[in-house]
Write a protein that binds this DNA or RNA. Structure first.
Length: 477
RNA sequence: UCCUCUUUAGCUCAGCUGGUUAGAGCAUCUGACUGUUAAUCAGAGGGUCGUUGGUUCGAGUCCAACAAGAGGAGCCA
C-alpha cells in the first residue's frame, strides 16, 4: 500500500479509509496513543493501538524518536484534540530509538543553544521543522518570482580568482601543499604551481559575473552560497550563507528599489499563504520568548501581524541626506544618547539604523544616495559629485537586509573611480569590456537569504535558520 | 577582534554574607494504566559543581588564567 503523508490526512479531515503512514514517534501515551510526525506538516497524527493485541516487545520499542511503518484505518476521533486519528492494524518498527541514549527528549524543552549542538537531530523539533519548511517555501518563492518575471537564473562561479569587490575576507582555494609550498624568488607563494595556476578563492558575491550576464540576457539573478572569512561573531553573520542577486539591464536606482520591495513582499506573502500553520507556531514561540523580556524591550507586534504590516504598507523611501537630517533632529541625538556621532559623510552605525527603522519609521526603510567614499567602486556616481546611486533596505530587528545600487555604466567614470580606489583595472578587463561594448544603465542588489528567513520566522540567531551553520571556530557536521 | 554576562544531574534551573552527606522540575529506569493530548500515579538510579592554579582550618560559593556558550559592538548580507 502506498504511503500517505500526514499532511494530507490531517488537512482533508476525511474518515473511513485505509492508509499506510510512516514517521517518527513524538510521544507515546497511556500505552495506547502514538503521536506520529513525518515532517510534512507541523501537527502530529494520533495513531491508536490496541495494547492487548500488540506484541509486548514491540510495545516497549515504541519510544520517542523511533521510526514506524503503520497500516490502519482513518477514523473520526472520539476525543477532543484532533478531528481524525488512525486506528492501527499493523505496526512495523523501522528503527528503534534507545531513550537512554537519545539526546532529544522534547519534554525537556531544550534551549536553542543546546539544539545547535545537536543540529543533526534538531529537525525533529517543532521549531526547526517549521523553520526549515518556511526556509524552503521562501527559496521556492524566490525562484517563482523571478521565473514569472522572465529572469534567467544564472549560476555564477563558487570558485573565483577575482577578489576585487572587497566585500570581505576570502577563503583560499588551493591544492598546494602546506609544507614545501612552492615559492617565488621573493618568498611569495608561487601560484603558477597551483591547480588553477593562479590564486583562487571562494566567492564573496556573484554580482560582477551577474552583470556580465545581464548585459545580454537583460534580466538575471543568482541564488547560491557565498563565503566570508571575516571573524565576525554575531547573531546576523555566517561564514557560509546564501545570497540572492538580481541584476537588471536598463533599470535605474528607483526601478531597483521597486524590484527589491516587490520581491520581499512576494516571498513574505507566499509564506503567509502556504505556511500559515508553521508561522503561527513560530509566532507563539516568539511571543513566549518575548514574555521573558522586560516590557520596554518587547516588540509591539506579533510575528504574523508584523509580516502582514510589511505586506500592506509601502516601504519608506529616503535619501541618505534625509536620513542624516532625521537623525540630527532625533531625541537620542539631542540628548546625546547615541554612542557614535552623526554628521553627513558617516557610515551609519547599527544604533542609527535601528533608530530610523524601529523608532522613527517603524517599517522597512529604503535609503538611497550614500556618500561615494563609503561605498564600492562600481556604484554609479550622481551628478552632485559626492554621492552614488546606492540603495540599502533596512528591516526592523535585523538591520540591513538588502544592499544594492545602480552600477556605473560610463567607462571613463568607472575607470577613474577604480584607479582612485586602487582596483587593478588590467585584471578586471572582462568587467570593463561590458562598458566598452554596448554599455547600458543597469542596477542590481544582494539579498541575504538567511536574513530574510530570520525576518519571516522571527528567529533571533542566524545560526538557527540554516541547517548546519558555519561560523568562526565551528564547522561541525 | 573588543566589551559584558553565563558555565551545577541527560535537559532547564535553584543553591543566601565561604561551613557537615549538593537540591527541584522534566527526562531515564522499574511497576500500574483501554481515551490520552506537555497523559497521570507509585518507587529507584543519576553530579570529580567547565578546566587548571591560588586564597583559606574549610571553596559550588572568593581570586587569576584558559576554554566553551550567549548578548552587544565593529564589518557586512
Amino acid at each position: 500500500m502506498a504511503r500517505t503523508k500526514l499532511k494530507d490526512i490531517l488537512q482533508s479531515e476525511k474518515a473511513d479509509y485505509q492508509v499506510n503512514v510512516r514517521g517518527w514517534v513524538r510521544s507515546f501515551r497511556n500505552n495506547q496513543f502514538i503521536a506520529l510526525n513525518d515532517g510534512s506538516c507541523m501537527a502530529n497524527l494520533q495513531v491508536v493501538i490496541d495494547p492487548e493485541n500488540t506484541d509486548e516487545q514491540l510495545l516497549k520499542q515504541i519510544t520517542a524518536g523511533a521510526a514506524l511503518n503503520i497500516n490502519g484505518t482513518v477514523i473520526e476521533s472520539p476525543a477532543k484534540g484532533q478531528k481524525v486519528e488512525v486506528k492501527a492494524e499493523s505496526i512495523e518498527l523501522y528503527g528503534e530509538c534507545n531513550p537512554e541514549d537519545y539526546p532529544l527528549q522534547l519534554k525537556n524543552r531544550p534551549s536553542l543553544e543546546y539544539l545547535r549542538e545537536i543540529a543533526h537531530l534538531r529537525f525533529r523539533t517543532n521549531t526547526f521543522g517549521a523553520v526549515f519548511r518556511v526556509r524552503h517555501a521562501l527559496a521556492y518563492a524566490v525562484h517563482k518570482f523571478f521565473n514569472d518575471k522572465g529572469f534567467v537564473y544564472l549560476h555564477t562561479p563558487i570558485i573565483t580568482a577575482s577578489d576585487a569587490e572587497g566585500a570581505g575576507e576570502m577563503f583560499k582555494v588551493t591544492t598546494l601543499p602546506f609544507d614545501n609550498t612552492p615559492r617565488n624568488e621573493d618568498g611569495t607563494v608561487n601560484f603558477k604551481e597551483d591547480f588553477f595556476e593562479r590564486a583562487a578563492n571562494l566567492t564573496v558575491s556573484g554580482q560582477l559575473e551577474a552583470e556580465l550576464g545581464a548585459m545580454a540576457l537583460s534580466e538575471v539573478y543568482t541564488f547560491g552560497p557565498t563565503f566570508r572569512a571575516e571573524n565576525s561573531n554575531t547573531a546576523r553573520h555566517l561564514a557560509e550563507f546564501w545570497m540572492i542577486e538580481p541584476e537588471v539591464a536598463f533599470n535605474d536606482i528607483h526601478d531597483n528599489a521597486d524590484l527589491a520591495e516587490e520581491l520581499l513582499k512576494y516571498i513574505i506573502k507566499y509564506a503567509l499563504d502556504n505556511n500559515r500553520e508553521d508561522l503561527e507556531f513560530l509566532a507563539d514561540r516568539l511571543a513566549n520568548e518575548e514574555k521573558q523580556k522586560p516590557q520596554n524591550e518587547r516588540s509591539e507586534m506579533g510575528l504574523v501581524e508584523k509580516l502582514e504590516f510589511v505586506l500592506n504598507n509601502d516601504f519608506e523611501r529616503i535619501t541618505y541626506t534625509e536620513a542624516i537630517d532625521v537623525l540630527m533632529q532625533s531625541k537620542p541625538y539631542k540628548k546625546k544618547k547615541f554612542k557614535f556621532d552623526v554628521s553627513w559623510g558617516i557610515d551609519m552605525q547599527s544604533e542609527h539604523e535601528r533608530y530610523l527603522v524601529e523608532k522613527h519609521y517603524k517599517k522597512p526603510v529604503v535609503v538611497t544616495d550614500y556618500p561615494k567614499d563609503i561605498k564600492a567602486f562600481y556604484m554609479r556616481q550622481n551628478d552632485d559629485g559626492k554621492t552614488v546611486a546606492a540603495m540599502d533596505i533596512l528591516a526592523p530587528g535585523i538591520g540591513e537586509i538588502v544592499g544594492g545600487s545602480q552600477r556605473e555604466e560610463r567607462l571613463d567614470k568607472l575607470t577613474q573611480r577604480m584607479q582612485e580606489m586602487d582596483i587593478p583595472t588590467e585584471e578586471m578587463y572582462w568587467y570593463l569590456d561590458t562598458r566598452k561594448f554596448g554599455t547600458v544603465p543597469h542596477a542590481g542588489f544582494g539579498l541575504g537569504f538567511e536574513r530574510i528567513v530570520q525576518f519571516v520566522t522571527g528567529m533571533g540567531n542566524i545560526r538557527d535558520v540554516i541547517p548546519f551553520p558555519r561560523t568562526p571556530g565551528n564547522c561541525e557536521f
